[in-house]
Amino acid sequence: MTSRILIIEDEALVAMELRFVLEDLGHEVVGTAADARAARNLVREMEVDLALVDIHLSDGPTGVELGRALAQEDGVTVLYMTANPGMVREGVAGTIGVLSKPADERAVQTAVDYALRRRKGEPVDYAPPELQLFA
């Protein structure tokens, strides 16, 4: 299930590790962005299926609003990855859910697979236990 994924993460080592995991799983990482403006520019330039969005970026806690905009305005499937899952406890319209960091490779794989299956309209009768789904 090859998909085009954008990593929105301001910590370079975390972004790099995530890129390696996703590429090992056969996905194409179209880029990484450390702030909301860079992320919006990448989405305008490229086709993006899934965005993994941190909440605290280099321009502040802009990830929540960025994820909402990407999902509602750009049709991107959004999965939050953050060490602060309480910041999106109530859910964010149009987005799938939140994966707490740090997350191991298996948790990333199952959460990404789940999100991409939902994007494609495939049946998903389970959610990975590490993934907190939004209503």
Rank of each mutant, 00 (worst) to 15 (best):
T2H: 00
R4C: 00
I5F: 06
L6V: 03
I7H: 04
I8S: 09
E9A: 05
E9G: 03
E11G: 03
A12L: 06
A12K: 02
L13A: 09
L13S: 09
V14F: 08
A15S: 03
E17M: 14
L18Q: 13
L18G: 00
L18W: 08
R19F: 08
F20H: 09
F20R: 07
L22S: 06
D24Y: 12
L25S: 08
L25Y: 14
H27L: 05
E28S: 13
E28M: 10
V29N: 10
V30Q: 05
G31P: 00
A33G: 01
A33P: 00
A34P: 02
A34V: 15
D35T: 04
A36W: 01
A36E: 11
R37T: 12
R37I: 09
A39C: 06
R40L: 14
N41Y: 07
N41L: 14
V43N: 05
R44F: 15
E45R: 12
E45K: 13
E47I: 06
D49R: 07
L50T: 11
L50M: 09
L50F: 13
A51F: 10
L52G: 07
V53S: 12
L57Q: 05
D59Q: 02
D59A: 09
D59L: 06
G60R: 13
P61T: 07
P61E: 06
P61M: 05
G63P: 07
V64C: 09
E65A: 14
L66F: 09
L66W: 09
G67T: 00
R68E: 08
A69V: 15
L70S: 03
A71V: 06
Q72W: 04
E73D: 15
E73W: 11
E73V: 11
G75N: 08
V76M: 11
T77Q: 09
T77V: 04
T77M: 10
V78S: 12
Y80D: 06
Y80Q: 07
T82S: 15
T82R: 11
A83L: 11
A83M: 14
P85C: 02
M87K: 13
M87P: 04
V88N: 07
V88A: 03
R89H: 14
E90F: 05
G91N: 03
G91D: 00
V92Q: 01
V92A: 02
V92R: 02
A93I: 07
A93Y: 06
T95M: 03
I96E: 10
V98N: 04
L99P: 04
S100R: 15
K101V: 07
K101H: 02
P102C: 07
A103G: 02
A103L: 08
D104N: 11
D104W: 05
E105P: 01
V108M: 08
V108D: 03
Q109M: 13
T110P: 06
A111L: 09
V112R: 11
V112Y: 12
V112M: 10
V112N: 11
D113L: 14
D113Y: 13
A115D: 04
A115F: 04
A115P: 07
L116E: 01
R117D: 13
R118K: 14
R118A: 13
G121W: 04
G121M: 02
G121N: 01
G121T: 01
G121D: 02
E122Q: 15
P123K: 11
P123E: 08
V124F: 13
D125E: 12
Y126N: 04
A127Q: 01
P128F: 03
P128E: 00
P129T: 03
E130I: 06
E130K: 08
L133A: 12
